[in-house]
Design a protein around this nucleic acid. Structure first.
Lengths: 200, 200
DNA sequence: GTCTATAAAAGGATAGAC
DNA sequence: GTCTATCCTTTTATAGAC
């Protein structure tokens, strides 16, 4: 592991703690104790706690390929299966966390009630990049999806299903809620594929 | 308006403030200033802030008919249309809040990362009551939904779509994200209804 | 059951030496 | 760029009189 700058250490710790405890429930003291840094070092790099948040959201945005898409899509070629492989990645995280998993972006999006414009833009940007990746899969599926289907809306619906499924699995502490959401989405795609084969 | 007990005043204020600002960002002082009560009165009724939260979640649970279902279903008979009338109610709230609306239950479910069992149970119970109501509509739709469709899973999928749509509309400050989620769900129901008519 | 005063702790942030 | 010490505010909660 290459020597980490103070900035890297803080962002790394904050990504984990904001995810585990939320933004408001993570104190500067938490970040300092986790990183073994002193407050002077943190405030030298990040003038305020919100600046740490911005750094975290930028890191998620910039890391979507490496952190999320590549691991999920390593051995998957079929574009539709890529979508469900991505969801399978979330399922793994749910199970690995004993169903306490929350999407880091979605959780922040609901926790922060009056976010700074910069924060809000970054949340939106993270969602956009996610749905754009899924939209790419839908586009690559070509004629399997009927003409006239709004590809962007369908991609956003995949995010909708993921976020809603994660929320319910977490609330009930039961993966099956996520599984059922994915299954319904799968049926939706299958109905669409069937409709593409049998025009009107 | 009947004279309100201290308890009622606090629950009423807390429902609004937890919804507007979140649980962590609402202080006891906020509740006191909003209700014009003194801390002695509050702590006499609610030994801790978490007890206020529990009271709020119980109020949502006990008020689902009067607060949510009756207003949405007042003039709707068709069971499938009831589902979309319910979603239309959320749309109204989104628009009325300039797209800052968050589902009170969903937001708390994601904000609270290590909830007390009692709190977690109440969150789950709120979701259950919501999906049970939708499941009733699906059941009432009878043969319009194909046999073999998991009605409970489909009802949970309606909640999934609502929560995911609300989250994205709020993040982008744009109702159209909610509208697209509802539209996709509508297409899903239409595909199901079509499948129910043309067996295999 | 409500009042005032206040404890006790945690939180974000700053200052100034090194 | 990092260290220690500390300020100031907010926050939950309690004590004890009325």
């Amino acid at each position: 592991m290459a020597p980490q700058s103070a900035r890297d250490k803080i962002i790394h710790a904050a990504m984990e703690l904001f995810w585990l405890k939320g933004y408001n429930s993570t104190s500067i003291a938490d970040l300092l104790s986790r990183t073994q840094l002193n407050s002077g070092s943190l405030y030298h790099v990040f003038p305020s706690k919100q600046d740490v948040l911005i750094g975290v959201l930028e890191a998620y945005r910039d890391g979507i390929e490496e952190m999320l898409l590549q691991p999920a899509w390593g051995h998957v070629d079929d574009p539709i299966e890529k979508i469900f492989a991505l969801l399978q990645g979330y399922r793994t995280m749910i199970v690995d966390t004993d169903c306490t998993y929350g999407c880091p972006i979605g959780s922040l999006a609901l926790e922060l009630h009056e976010p700074d414009p910069r924060v809000r833009d970054l949340l939106a940007e993270n969602f956009e990049n996610w749905t754009r990746a899924v939209e790419g899969c839908i586009g690559a599926a070509g004629k399997r999806i009927p003409r006239g289907v709004d590809k962007k809306a369908l991609a956003q619906f995949v995010l909708t299903a993921m976020e809603g499924g994660v929320m319910q699995a977490r609330t009930h502490r039961d993966v099956s809620y996520f599984d059922r959401a994915v299954k319904q989405l799968r049926e939706h795609f299958e109905l669409l594929e069937k409709a593409a084969k049998t025009p009107a």
